[in-house]
Design a protein around this nucleic acid. Structure first.
Length: 315
DNA sequence: GAAATTTGACCAAG
DNA sequence: CTTGGTCAAATTTC
């Protein structure tokens, strides 16, 4: 250490990151294929092993990238374009007063908002459930081109009473209809529910807890540090008591209390997320390697319930 | 009656 | 022009 100049060190780290990402990608592709097979048809490679490999590769690459740039590294900053929580997104209403000048009377018109840029701060979670411990309110649904299932749009229930701008989009995955891809935008600034209000729960978010954190990879939002993520998910309620109707299902993964006795994998299913047509024919994995992109699939059911995903292996 | 969901319309981005 | 994200009135649920 110390023998390399800074540019050399950055280059080396970058190379390492690329290698790790490639491995991760390949492992993810294999896992994707595996998940498309029946349980008894897995061949020599176990899904469990692949997940571990994926996790390790991604965390290695992340750490490599993190270590290769200082805090001022431009690459690691949030894209300057859109920042969730800014007046231009989250809630489209509060949009862009400059542009509203061409609007008659702001509030009269519907759809007066600015569309979120794809580069805005977001992260994706793929799970058999859409439960995440927060209370959401559905505000829209849309048929998406080339998607078998409609996409549902949710915003934080506390948008109005607490001004929480968090939103999410839920879409069933065409290649795996029992899985949901949930894209989160913005941070929860609300205090969801005083359920069991353990002060520890509120003040010590690191108490491992967050079902989301354990399983998601953050993309696009390079600005979300671990601390921020912990803050943003500091209410790790795994219990449906905190949830409204939309959380009638069960948590299948990543609860802090899921030590062993996992519930049967039975995803929450909104009727509107049901297939528009029978998903009897899955697309071949080769056509969809981009569909999952970097999303990490973790389904407890595939791990026989005994597999505990260790956060430590992640970061 | 209040709160949540549904659904058609509106509008911006591409 | 097409597609996707959001709004808000109407409807449903509790």
């Amino acid at each position: 250490m110390g023998t390399l100049s800074l540019p050399e060190k950055i280059c080396a780290n970058r190379k390492r990151a690329v290698e790790e990402l490639i491995k991760g990608r390949d492992a993810a592709a294999q896992l994707q294929i595996l998940l498309g097979k029946s349980v008894g048809d897995r061949g020599p490679v176990s899904a469990e092993g692949l997940v571990v490999e994926i996790s390790r590769s991604f965390s290695d690459s992340i750490s490599a990238l993190m270590s290769s740039c200082g805090q001022d590294c431009e690459v690691c900053k949030v894209p300057a374009t859109t920042q969730v929580g800014s007046p231009s997104c989250g809630d489209g209403r509060s949009v862009d007063s400059g542009e509203s000048s061409k609007m008659p009377a702001a509030k009269e018109k519907r759809g007066c908002y600015k569309r979120r840029k794809s580069t805005s701060e977001s992260y994706v979670k793929v799970s058999t459930t859409t439960e995440d411990g927060h209370a959401w309110r559905k505000y829209g649904q849309k048929e998406i081109q080339n998607a078998q299932f409609p996409r549902c749009y949710f915003r934080c229930t506390h948008k109005h009473d607490q001004g929480c701008l968090a939103t999410k989009q839920v879409q069933r995955i065409k290649e795996a209809p029992h899985m949901y891809q949930t894209t989160y935008f913005g941070h929860h600034t609300c205090r969801p529910y005083p359920l069991n209000n353990h002060p520890d729960d509120l003040q010590n978010p690191s108490s491992d807890s967050d079902p989301v954190d354990k399983n998601l990879l953050c993309f696009g939002s390079n600005s979300i540090t671990t601390d921020e993520k912990e803050h943003q998910h500091q209410y790790p309620s795994c219990r449906p008591s905190s949830v409204k109707k939309e959380y009638c299902g069960e948590e299948t993964v990543q609860c802090n209390n899921l030590s062993g006795d996992l519930p049967a994998v039975e995803p929450i299913v909104w009727p509107e997320l049901m297939p528009l047509e029978s998903p009897s024919v899955y697309s071949s994995a080769s056509t969809s390697s981009h569909g999952f992109d970097m999303d990490l699939l973790l389904e407890s059911g595939d791990f026989g319930g005994g597999f505990h995903f260790d956060e430590a292996s992640f970061f």
